[in-house]
Every structure is written in C-alpha cells, then in structure tokens.
Design a protein around this nucleic acid. Structure first.
Length: 840
RNA sequence: GCCCCGGUAGUCCAACGGCAGAGACAGUGGUCUCAAACACCAUCCAGUGUGGGUUCGAAUCCCACCCGGGGCACCA
C-alpha cells in the first residue's frame, strides 16, 4: 500500500508520490493464489485445449537469470491463452537424474537424492515466488521410481520392437565423467557437459535405433516450417545428413587367392570410371580381415597410432593424409581394372560401409591422398578447369564426361543427373550395385556407466542371454549407495552393489546379473511431456486418452542448445509411440520458441569473469514483476539480452505509474464505457486489438511498449483530458491491468482489486474489442512530390482516390512545388499517401 | 572453406515497399523541495554498415562487399 505520509502535503502531491509496497503485494497474492488456484488444468473442461510447455530444469542449485527469462516469456503465452478462454495445460517438473547430484554425493558422502530433492524444493519455492502460472498438481521428477518405472517399461517396449539393442563398437568416452557419450553429446571432440577431450573405447553398449527413423525425422519437419525456428530445423537436417547416391560392389582379391565382394557408398557413381583406388577405414573390421599377411604389422601399427589420436586431432582440417597399403587389389566394376586398396583414417568406419571408391580427380580428399602416395589420377569429367592432377585442386563441378567407357558409357554426356541415372541403371542391371540413400545420423548410445540414472531393466543370464525384467517386477529400483560407493571407476557403481546386481534369471532361475548401466538422462526427458497429461496414471506411462486430450504440445519454449539433443530424441520417441498406437500425432511440439541467453556486459555470465547477476538480488531490489517486465521488454524473445543494457529500475517506475491509475479511477466498477471519452476509448481498443496480434506473433517486447503507450494516454486523460470520472478511464485502466497480468501478475492482481473486482485477474478474460472504435475518425494523408513530403492532409479514412488526389493537387504547398513543372503521373494510395511524379 | 541470422539516435529496441520513431534507458533544461530523491513537464540525439540495382517511392526487395553472432566442416 501507499507509503506513510506526514500529512503536510496536499492530496495531489500525495497521489503523485504514491507507490505500492512491492514486497507486501507479492506476499499477499502469493498466499491468496494458493486458494484461488487459477491454473489447474481441468481434464474435463469443455473449453478448447492449449498445451504450453517450457523445458523442465535440472535441479542444480537455485534458479538463475536464464530460468527467469525463459519462464517469464513462456508465462506470457500461457496466461494469454487463459485470458483468451482456452483450457491451458502448463505443467512443470524436474529432470532430476544426472551427474552433478552424483558428484555432490561423492563429495559430501551422501545419497544423490539428498542433493537432488533439496534443490528441487529450493527451485519450487523460487518458481512460486516468481508468480508463474504452472499447474503444480502435475509436478513430476524423472528420478522418482513412479516415473522411471515407465522409462524402463518404454525401454523394454522399444527392445521388443527391435529398437533397443546392444553392440560392440568404438564409442566416445569421457575420462572425467567416466562414462560413454552419444554422438550428440560430443561437441568439437569434447564432452558436451564438462569440456574434457573425449577418447575412444571399444565397448558393448545399448543403443536406440534412431537410424530406422531417419527419413521420417526428416520428412516430418516439413510442416514445422514457420512454427519452429529455421535454425533448429537446419541443425536437425544437417545432423540427420541425408545423401543420395549408390552402392557399388567391388570384388576384392585377397592375398590368399580368394575373392570377396565389398560394397562402397558413393554420391557420385557417375565418376566410377575415375576410381583409381579404394580406401577402407583402418578401424573397420573389414581392414583387419582383408589385409595381406606381409602388411598386417604395418596396419596394426597404423591402427594403434590413430587410436591414440583424439577426435580433436582427427578433425583438424589441414591435417596431412595418412594411410597404409593393405596389399590387396580390387576390380573396378566398370573398367575391369585392378586398383590398389588402402587403409586411411579419412574414411570413417561407421559411415556407409566403411569403405570408399577413391576418385582423386573429382574429390579433394582423394586427390590429396593420391598425390601424397603417388596414386594415379584420371579425369572423367571435363569441367573446363585445369587438370586436377597438375593443380592439386579437384574439380567437383559439372562438365562433360570423358574417359568414361566411350559411347556405351557416359562419354559425351554433360548432365550430371543423367550420368548418375545411367550408371546406376547399368550397375543395377548387372547386379553390381543399386541406388542408395545414406544418413549421417548414428544410433543413439544410451547406456551410461554412472549411478544416478534410470537402471536398464535387463538381466544377463549365462544360459538365456539378455532377459527383460518382467513388467510386474518394474521398477528396477536403484540401491541405496552413497559417498565413496559412487566413485567412478570405469564401470557403473551398480556393478559393485552385490546384493543388487546378483539375481536369479527370471526365465530359467539360475544365478544371473542385472545390467549395471543406467540410461542417458535424455531418455527420461524424451517422454516427460506425455506423462504430464496423466501424471498419476498407474497402468502405463500415460493415459492414452489424456494424451489425446492434451497433446501435442502447442507451444514449447526452451534453449537452442537442445536442437539436436532433446528435441531430436523426443521426436524419435513420439514417432515410436505413434507406431505403437499410443499417441495420435507424429510430432510432439507443434511450435517451438528458442529464447535468447541473458548475458552481462557483452559476455556470458561466469564466476571467473565476475559478471554474474544474481536473480535473487534483483528480485529483492526491484521485485518479481519488474524483473519479469525487464526481461520481456528487453527485445525480441529469441535475441540474447545484455543485462547491462536494461533497467529494472525503469520497469519498476513504469509499474508504479500503472498502479497509480488504478487508484485514480473514480467511476464505479461495472460502469458502461459506451458514454466515455471516444479519443481514449479508441486508444484502448486499438491497443487491445494490436496486443492480441502481437502476442500471437510472440512480439512480447512490442506489446509492453503498447501498454506503456496506453498508460501514458490514460494518465494524460486523467490529468488533462476527460478526467478521472470518465468511464473511458476505467475501461483503459482495466485494459492496462489485464494486459499487464501477462507479464506482471502481482501488481496486476493488486490493481484489479483496487478497481473493485474479485480476483483473479488472470482469469478475467481478454477485453472485447469494438471494431467501430478501431476506425480512426480522420487520418493524415501525406502528399509527396518526387517522393519528398510537401503537405499533410487530414482526410476521412474512407476517402476516395479521386477525392484525395483532388485535395492533394489543390494544396498550396503542393502547387508551389509543382510550379512550372508538368505532372507526369500521380500515385494515390488512399487514405495515406499521394505521390506526384513530375515530367523529365 | 560452406550455410544461416543480424547491422536503425550515446544504449536497448520499433517502423503492411509509403512522413525513419512506438516504447524505454542514459543526457539536458524546468516544475515541486530549504535542499535532494521521487514524481511530473519539456527537450537534445540517427537518415538506417558500404557500394550498386529494381521502383513514382527502399531501413524494408535483389546483387556484391564489410563487420558481428551462430551452425556445419575429411560423412565419400
């Protein structure tokens, strides 16, 4: 409430100085909202549904500026939907499995749950103080057994469908976190989480067969254009990396006189005549199988050398080519020539077949290799450029085929597509190859050698092999390990938990062992948005009907860092669940908003730079509403915002001004605005109308500016216009309050009460707009001569082109500008503009 | 190297191809005050990164370049 005054001042001064008590208002309404409960989503509501979701946090410490920004933006959308009359599902929970808790547990000799659930409570309290419209009845934690029971269930279902399998393969290993990582979690050769350089290990691990869904993951992005950031779609497209080409069979002639056929994948089968050697990935099993006995040692040494090299070295772009001759030859299927077979690490074991045909003339990598090891270069496409063999620059472009089997081959053709089609058809006819599509996407490595995650519900039996834990025995609950028991040692700490790991085989009853790895936490978060629809459901991961009611997510908000992680995995899960008949849709998130990052003084906030901004301190100094307003007003939601450019003090000042309006209104609640001041009413209705359009377009910063305008206009009307008693002033103040409720819920609630209404303003409903008030009484038409403004005319908005032109030509200033010049053309855009073009 | 996104007052940001300014921050001057803070009023500040083009008219569309940010980068 307003501050204590001494009474020396007159009423006007008092009113001008009046401010509300930010803390008091927050406390008052936070308490009141618990009973008012305006945001619990009703499963049975007849209203149209909207599902608003913001990426749930990992519980590391308290909330920070990043959380404050994303939830403030997200809340604007959710609250707008409520005001528009939708039944809104807006849940929140915690992604509560993960390494930080485990590391803290080791440090403090405790169970990871201690750290986890303590932080969850801290964050929960902070979220509540922050005034967000979450439906807390649906709160979930992925580390709760009631939740991860269903993560395990889904794993088993995926396995039944052949989508979860185990294989031995070289994998990414983070030496610091002591666990394997998925491809998506390795960035520039380093661990996504801790930045440690990743090494390779040969391990048997669990995978999800995402590659089976590569084409659908690509195709189903099509309808997302326009509602997902183009950037994310591009990232996913690149990550999936579809390419078209052909498989071509080469016969290999081994040292022992036998022959075997090896397929290679190429996007340029049309250059097959120029394939003068073959290259095999040194670490592919094929290399070891085919290497000639006298080269075995060399190959082994080379293999050792590249195993030692980190991905960082391997990825260096200017790195010289290395390799060894395997002492074997292959027959080029179209020329019949015998070509040498080499092993080189520029060929990757896990892409295509791990072997390539090398066409040095038209592929830079092959050319570099050929020049280094003196291998022949044969040009088969004449692009008009100089001979690659001499320049060292491969010509990858289009041209005319030469040296390509004469007229029976491709010679003379100059259309690449036709060349590819012809050679592919010929290979197919001869049974030596076929057209093929390839993807860069790899299967998702999901096992982790750490404790604080969802156990993999598999039992390894010597007699039966891998046995699924029977459904009625789920969940496989984590044992009570803590402190030193959790120290990473290269295998999961679970392996050492004797009592836990040793079980009888559910199939044959002999002693067996549980799988001791846990799942990647991205598995947990790949389906949480479905669980929210029926968080207490006990007969499955979710109630199919509830998901039919609420799904898919209409608006997802979160950071762009998950472009190829969480978002790709969730899309994959949704498609599998669709195929299982459990969800109707194939895409989980209809619209996506990537909020920007909050930085300070041009740099990312960090301890070492000492430029961190404490959310708690900002909230204490300026209040929740001002901080939220500051973040929303800072700029377009997807832009990064620099805290140093912002003014939470300015935001608070504005909120005080807005609040003051609610005390100045003297007309009673419920008064008919129809008789009110038309000028102010026009502004109010136009603002409400435009605000809706801007909100639909997620132009939240502009909405705030519009509300500021309306506040300014209302202030002016009270002080120097129609006065505080005019019903239009009440109408304007109420519109301000409802608009403000999306961003600054506390002060809006307080204003709503002061205006004589019952809470909650959050459910007051969007103000209705009178179309007639959107039409201006008169508009200013601009008259230009040669594009330069010469006059302004006040005209009716529905003025005819002819009338406007006549008025413009009659204008004195226009006549002066036209003096002595001939009018060549008059462009009329009624009612806004006339441009007179004069003769040359 | 390739592909995206963005360059508008001192700052953050607005502007259906049609008056460059909606809003704010920071200045400056004033009213109020013993004085200050608050509040209020007024006011200063750019011709839109550069160079071309299309158009009656370009911040907006096209081309090239410069700068900043992001992504991809031996994927055959």
């Amino acid at each position: 409430m307003s501050q204590d005054r001494t009474g020396d001042h007159d009423r006007t001064a008092d009113r001008e100085h009046a401010t509300y008590d930010v803390e008091g208002v927050q406390e008052k309404w936070q308490k009141a909202w618990v009973d008012l409960d305006p945001f619990t989503a009703d499963d049975d509501s007849p209203r149209e549904k909207r599902y608003a979701l913001t990426m749930f946090p990992y519980p590391s410490g308290d909330l920070h500026m990043g959380h404050a920004e994303v939830t403030a933006l997200h809340d604007v959308i959710a609250r707008y939907w409520w005001q528009q009359g939708y039944e809104v599902l807006n849940p929140m929970g915690w992604d509560s499995f993960g390494l930080p808790a485990e590391n803290a547990a080791i440090r403090n000799d405790e169970h990871p749950a201690t750290y986890t659930y303590a932080n969850i409570e801290t964050q929960f309290d902070s979220f509540q103080k922050y005034g967000l419209s979450f439906d807390w009845t649906r709160r979930l934690h992925t580390s709760d057994p009631e939740y991860y029971r269903w993560t395990q269930w889904l794993f088993l279902k995926f396995r039944e469908r052949g989508l979860a399998y185990r294989k031995n393969s070289p994998v990414n290993w983070c030496p610091k976190d002591q666990t394997v990582l998925a491809n998506e979690q390795v960035v520039d050769g380093a661990c996504d989480r801790c930045g440690t350089v990743v090494t390779k290990r040969e391990l048997t691990q669990w995978y999800f067969k995402v590659t089976d869904y590569a084409q659908r993951l690509l195709d189903d992005m099509e309808p997302l254009h326009g509602s997902w950031p183009e950037r994310v779609l591009t990232l996913q497209r690149n990550w999936i990396g579809r390419s078209e080409g052909a498989h071509v069979d080469f016969d290999l002639h081994l040292a022992d006189g036998t022959t075997r056929t090896v397929g290679v994948y190429t996007t340029r089968p049309d250059t097959l005549y120029g394939a003068t050697f073959m290259v095999v990935a040194p670490d592919a099993p094929l290399a070891a199988e085919i290497v000639a006995p006298d080269r075995r040692e060399q190959h082994a040494a080379y293999l050792e050398e590249i195993r030692r090299a980190s991905d960082i070295d391997r990825l260096a772009t200017d790195r010289a080519k290395t390799g060894v001759d395997l002492g074997v030859t292959a027959t080029n299927p179209v020329t019949g020539e015998r070509v040498p077979v080499w092993a080189a690490d520029y060929v990757l074991a896990d892409y295509g077949t791990g072997a390539i045909m090398a066409v040095p003339a038209h592929d830079q990598r092959d050319l570099d290799f050929a020049r280094k090891f003196d291998l022949p270069v044969r040009r088969v496409v004449d692009t008009g450029e100089e001979n690659p063999e001499e320049t060292g620059v491969a010509t990858a472009g289009d041209g005319t085929y030469v040296n390509s089997g004469g007229a029976d081959g491709l010679d003379g053709l100059s259309d690449k597509a036709a060349g590819i089609a012809r050679i592919t058809a010929r290979l197919e006819a001869e049974g030596r190859g076929q057209g093929a599509v390839n993807f860069r996407l790899r299967d998702w490595l999901l096992s982790r050698q750490r404790f604080w995650g969802c156990p993999i519900p598999i039992i390894h039996c010597e007699r039966c092999g891998e046995v699924a834990v029977p459904e009625d025995q789920l969940p496989v609950v984590l044992p009570e390990l803590k402190g030193a028991d959790l120290k990473p040692k290269g295998v999961s700490p679970l392996a050492a938990a004797e009592e836990w790991v040793n079980v009888d085989c559910p199939q044959c009853g002999v002693p067996a062992k549980r799988d001791s790895d846990t799942m990647d936490t991205f598995v947990d978060s790949s389906w949480y948005f479905l669980r929210y629809c029926s968080p207490d459901y006990t007969d499955g991961p979710f109630d199919v009907e509830a998901v039919r009611r609420w799904g898919p997510v209409d608006q997802y908000v979160g950071g762009v860092e998950h472009a190829v992680l969480h978002l790709l995995y969730s899309r994959f899960f949704t498609k599998v669940l669709h195929d299982m008949g459990m969800v109707d849709f194939v895409e989980p998130f209809s619209a996506l908003l990537n909020q920007g990052v909050v930085i300070n003084r041009g740099k990312k906030m960090s301890k070492s730079l000492g430029n961190g901004v404490s959310l708690g301190e900002q909230l204490a100094e300026f209040g929740v509403d001002a901080v939220r307003l500051t973040l929303v007003f800072a700029g377009p939601p997807e832009d990064n915002i620099d805290w140093a450019d912002l003014s939470p003090a300015g935001s608070l000042k504005f909120l005080q001004r807005a609040w003051r309006l609610s005390g100045d209104v003297t007309s009673p609640a419920g008064v008919d605005p129809a008789e009110g001041d038309v000028a102010l009413r026009r502004i109010t209705h136009r603002t409400v109308h435009e605000a809706a359009e801007l909100l639909e377009g997620q132009r939240f910063n502009v909405v705030v500016a519009r509300v500021m305008e309306l506040v300014n206009a209302t202030r002016k009307a009270i002080d120097a216009g129609c006065g505080p008693a005019d019903p239009a002033v009440r109408e304007a103040a109420e519109a301000v309050t409802i608009l403000l409720s999306l961003v600054a819920p506390y002060v809006a609630e307080e204003m709503w009460e002061r205006l004589g209404h019952a809470p909650s303003v959050a459910r007051a409903g969007w103000p209705s707009v009178d179309e007639r008030l959107l039409v201006q009484e008169s508009v200013t038409a601009v008259v230009q001569v040669q594009g330069k403004v010469k006059a302004r005319l006040e005209v009716s908005p529905d003025v005819s082109e002819a009338d406007l032109e006549a008025a413009a030509m009659a204008d004195e200033a226009v006549q002066r500008a036209l003096a002595g010049r001939s009018v060549r053309k008059v462009i009329v855009r009624a009612p806004k503009l006339v441009n007179v073009v004069v003769g040359a």
